[in-house]
Design a protein around this nucleic acid. Structure first.
Lengths: 229, 229
DNA sequence: AATATAGTGTGTAATTTTTACACTAAGTAA
DNA sequence: TTACTTAGTGTAAAAATTACACACTATATT
């Protein structure tokens, strides 16, 4: 974000790219600004780092204020500090991304005053963003594209129990390309970090798929070995 | 660095891990502090970001002040902002690494006042570092380990003309493990980004090896395709 | 001139990984 | 019962990775 500029030489903020997945589309959370500069523009949610907060804490707080969610996987990925990126003065901002399963319930709390509203917008159809937020978003997407190939972050976007098709869908959306079903399943199962459940998908009007769960124990054991997609 | 703390809520600095290769060992540049806190300790070189500098510019300036070098490959990799990482107040620092071919000439200029001296020390035998600089260094090494597998950064550590054995040596030092000579050569040549020169190594008391050059043109063409080591 | 020394440069076979590709099975809805 | 929709599965060819050893060449030494 970056609204109020107290009388300091430089201001240090955090901006977040919150990726959400609702089972269909990949979305990010944007807020519509209620203040100059860039009043009425869409922007990434953000805030100023508090004096006694660590950076990670600060990012979690921003997420919590906006969505009411805690315990979400977030990761710092780049600092943006062009001296003129903010029209009203020097603001250095640190970008975080988070991965969130949508379609829950409790998301989207009351928003702070500098925003009119907040919305999950599909990444395939984003509006123009305030400040250099397009750049921040681009780099964030690039990061998760890279990371999803090596770290088990896809599961953060899915409910605890999920089907292999849903998992593949996440990979396809993030990587931006189709994957072969048989090869995908072969590979993902071969990592040995999925636990097949005795349960089936419910409420679908066709053959129900087997549910799986990401097995953190097994993953922890494999650590050192890296997943490679 | 992070010495003087003006009366601000927070201070924003840059710390650099400068990796240097002299043909034998991988080293980093450390400065011996001349001021409290951590007087007489070794620390990563750093400085406060100036009001009109971009972050990259600031990192380049710090490098230049210390070594007299310009045009060096540097990359931002992580922000460290624990509220208590600096005993005298809040200092958020952004870490950069750089890769430098040593054994040149002009390196190591006069040092600013907060340091007694600066030295290239082999990474296999580092002293205790001031502040959280060990953590910063660790993460930096981790980053280049990862990056050297996908990006052509090894060449930054070598003279313009180099032998395949020298190149392999760099990979081995960064990755911290031995590689098979024949397989290494096969693979690195297969990327097609090396130009074999008509020249041979000089001044060795054994069969002279063929020299190669990194071919930026070819690499640029391949872009999109990624190297994978 | 002969010899010792030290690093250069090269090929192949076995194994593993990746890729491309299509049909049957199961469950639901009409 | 039939139509529909997605689940679930195997194999063969190609490509990439691994493991492995010796002859060559230039110089230095005697």
């Amino acid at each position: 974000m970056e609204q109020i500029l107290p009388h300091l030489d430089s201001v240090f903020s955090i901006d977040c790219v919150l990726f959400g997945f609702d089972g269909k589309e990949l979305k990010i959370l944007l807020i519509e600004r209620n203040e100059e500069p860039f009043k009425d523009w869409w922007a990434l949610p953000g805030n100023i780092v508090g004096p006694d907060e660590s950076l990670d804490q600060s990012a979690s707080r921003i997420l919590y204020e906006l969505t009411g969610l805690r315990g979400i996987y977030m990761e710092q990925y780049y600092a943006f500090g062009d001296p003129y990126r903010h029209p009203q003065g020097r603001v250095i901002t640190l970008a975080y991304y988070a991965l969130i399963r949508l379609g829950g319930d409790k998301e989207l709390r009351p928003i702070s005053t500098y925003a009119k509203r907040a919305n999950w917008l599909p990444i395939t159809d984003l509006p123009k963003l305030a400040f250099d937020h397009q750049k921040i978003y681009d780099k964030g997407l690039e990061k998760i594209k890279r990371r999803i190939k090596h770290q088990p972050i896809a599961f953060e976007l899915l409910p605890e129990k999920f089907t292999l098709t849903q998992l593949q869908h996440v990979y396809e959306l993030v990587l931006g390309k189709k994957l072969d079903k048989r090869n995908f399943r072969k590979k993902i199962v071969s990592f040995g970090v999925l636990k097949e459940l005795d349960e089936k998908q419910k409420g679908v009007s066709y053959r129900a798929a087997t549910l799986y769960r990401f097995d953190k124990r097994k993953y922890a054991k494999l650590f050192g070995k890296e997943i490679s997609f």
